[in-house]
Amino acid sequence: MFKKLIEKGIEKSPWLLHINTGSCNGCDIELVSVITPRYDAERMGFKLAGTPRHADIVVVSGPITSQSKERLVRTLAQVPDPKVVVSIGSCPRSCNVFHGSYSVEGPLDRYCDVDVSIAGCPPKPEAIIDGLAKAVEILKTKRRGK
């Protein structure tokens, strides 16, 4: 019975982990705007986690630069398993204008499965909320499938 309660609580309040892999900060600012009072995503249960070990949803922004690749792979490995990877903006999806650069080692799907992508450069906070809502649905199916 306690297990059911915990399970329901986790589904209702997924914790986010934000990884910036060399982003231009445009997407990061939009994500900050989502979790601060204007678009308060905490009323839907989303909360920024301090460490990857607490996270359910991983939000990645930026093309993966050579400097951040190692850190990204290490951080993703620390997230416990039913996890959902969300890519914000065009950069993790396809490296955007940086593709072909000697210092960019993206796109993100080389290193992990990207479950939800939010297009836009940067996406509007409303679009990020839509994307997170989709990520929660995927998280639910992943947890119940287990």
């Binding site: 939010i118 297009a119 836009g120 409303e126 679009a127 839509d130 994307g131 989709k134």
Partner: peptide, 11 residues
């Protein structure tokens, strides 16, 4: 503005 997808085809 709401461009959310799980697949490449969505974009």
């Amino acid at each position: 503005y709401s461009m959310v997808g799980t697949d490449e085809e969505d974009f």
